[in-house]
């Protein structure tokens, strides 16, 4: 066997090894430089007087969410707040990354709409340690220690359900048999809107839910589910529909029309969200009432954020201002709807 030279055994010629070390050293120098740059950037941010807010949005899944984002961006621009906006594209991982990067950037306040309710404990603790207050918008999180966030501003889904039921009670007489199109099973708006509605009709024996199915908050599934229901013997006795959102109501309206009935007349319909298309449906006489779920929370959100930044105390739970709209006022309001 041939003897193995030292060079071969090492695998790398000595000169090359040396140049590697040099390269490594160079890399080290560059990265130190980068870190230095990073550090020097921070005082710049601090010196400009404006408030820096990091906001992590869920995504852009609907017109409602778009209006929500737009309201936040507009309000930030109006108040001269430096808004660092990040879109999580429906992924919790992205959201956690975004919050970590806000902490690293040293923003004054972090606000976010959590994609899901759980799993934010650790990153919120990191924010707390860094001394950055967190405001939740639109959706809540489940944490064992509620000092991890300073305030939660969002719609009260249960109240929305109560209002829908109240409208139905106030605007019908005699026995009312209700069909219900629920939202995505297990989601907070679906659970709370169902509970709120039931809480009110419990006190009114003449109103009864006889059918309940999920339309998954979508038009297609709302239409398919209701189309199947309309063929059952129960359908003829049903005089009202409660849909957890406008989209499903609009799908159901199409199914009702195809079944040869008159939506809004044969079957009274009340839904939630108050999107522009619901106003159109009310003008057309197909929908009777829509309860607002208001995405335009920018002004209220930044009121809270500014207070938090100034060290003032804020309520733990802030409810969004919302209304109830009926067919009679739809025509004059439709042009003012932004979403």
């Amino acid at each position: 066997m041939k003897t193995v030279s030292r060079r071969d055994r090492a695998g790398i010629p000595l000169s090359l090894a040396f140049s590697r070390a040099t390269a490594l050293l160079a890399l080290l120098v560059v990265s130190i430089g980068l870190v230095a740059c990073d550090g020097s950037a921070e005082p710049n941010d601090g010196s400009s007087a404006s408030l820096v807010v990091g906001f992590s949005q869920i995504g852009a899944e609907s017109d409602w969410r778009r209006a929500n984002t737009q309201s936040i961006r507009d309000e930030a621009a109006k108040r001269g707040i430096d808004l660092r906006f990040s879109d999580a594209q429906q992924k919790k991982e992205n959201q956690i990354k975004a919050i970590r990067s806000f902490i690293a950037q040293g923003v004054d306040v972090i606000a976010f709409s959590p994609v899901v309710e759980t799993g934010f404990e650790q990153v919120l603790e990191e924010a707390k340690r860094a001394g950055i207050p967190v405001v939740l918008s639109d959706r809540a999180v489940e944490v064992s220690d509620d000092s991890l966030y300073v305030s939660f501003i969002g719609s009260d889904f249960e109240e929305e359900g109560r209002r829908a039921a109240q409208w139905l009670v106030d605007n019908t007489e005699g026995e009312v048999r209700v069909a219900e199109l629920q939202g995505t099973p297990g989601s907070a708006p679906a659970l709370d809107r169902a509970a709120g509605f039931r809480a009110v009709i419990e006190n009114h024996d003449r109103v009864e839910i006889v059918w309940s199915q999920s339309g998954n908050f979508t038009r297609t599934e709302g239409k398919q589910a209701f189309q199947a229901f309309l063929k059952s013997p129960d359908a003829d006795s049903v005089t009202a529909l409660y849909a957890h959102n406008d989209d499903m109501a609009i799908g159901a309206i199409q199914a009702i029309k195809e079944a040869g009935k008159d939506p809004g007349e044969d079957i009274k319909i009340v839904s939630i969200d108050a999107v522009k298309q619901a106003f159109q449906a009310m003008i057309d006489g197909d929908l009777n009432c829509t309860v607002e779920c208001n995405p335009l929370i920018g002004p209220q959100l930044f009121d809270i954020i500014e207070k938090v930044a100034a060290g003032e105390s804020v309520p733990k739970r802030v409810k969004v201002e919302e209304g109830v709209f009926t067919a009679s006022e739809a025509a004059e309001l439709i042009d003012s709807r932004q979403y």
Binding site: G186, Q213, S214, Q224
Partner: peptide
């Protein structure tokens, strides 16, 4: 459609 007709809960 059977699930719809039988009113089986979506979950």
């Amino acid at each position: 459609n059977t699930m719809y007709a039988q009113e089986v809960r979506p979950e």
